[in-house]
Computed example of a mutant assay.
Amino acid sequence: MRESLERMLAKGVDNSLLRFGLGKAWLDEGNGGEAAVHLRRCVEFDPKYSAAWKLLGKAHQLQGDKAAARLAWEQGLEAARAHGDKQAEKEMTVFLKKLDKAVQ
């Protein structure tokens, strides 16, 4: 799947949905660095895309960058609240609490 998405990007297709798909595919493969590149581009296209913020935080966490993960989730919470996305809001709140517990 990732390969077909990469081909679309190479052909000049570039939008939030494509970048979200690429970010998720890279995250599923365990590559937080590549995932973060695409997910960051996704939220540049659509800052209200709360699911992308959620995965961007996961990508940063996978890389061991807790500060960047926190920032992504905090921005994601704002997006989720503004958009009324209760599920994403709950999930990112839990992620932030777990991050706080891990720091202590």
Rank of each mutant, 00 (worst) to 15 (best):
E3R: 08
M8D: 11
L9N: 13
A10I: 04
K11M: 12
V13A: 07
N15H: 08
L17K: 13
L18W: 00
R19Y: 03
R19K: 10
F20Q: 07
F20L: 12
G21Y: 13
L22C: 07
L22A: 03
G23Q: 05
A25N: 10
A25P: 02
W26G: 00
W26K: 06
D28R: 09
G30E: 01
G32M: 07
G32D: 06
G33E: 07
V37E: 13
H38D: 01
H38M: 01
R40H: 15
R40Q: 15
R40F: 10
C42G: 10
C42T: 06
C42E: 06
V43Q: 04
F45I: 02
D46M: 07
Y49T: 01
S50E: 10
A51W: 06
G57I: 02
G57N: 11
K58A: 08
A59W: 03
A59V: 03
H60D: 12
Q63R: 13
Q63G: 11
G64E: 05
G64N: 11
G64D: 05
D65G: 13
K66D: 14
K66P: 00
A67I: 04
A67W: 02
A69D: 09
A72S: 14
W73A: 01
W73E: 00
E74W: 00
G76E: 05
E78Y: 15
H83K: 15
H83T: 10
G84I: 10
G84N: 04
D85Q: 09
D85P: 12
Q87L: 13
Q87T: 07
E89S: 11
K90M: 09
K90Y: 11
M92A: 00
F95A: 11
K97L: 08
K101L: 11
A102Q: 12
A102G: 07
V103E: 15
V103H: 06
Q104F: 09
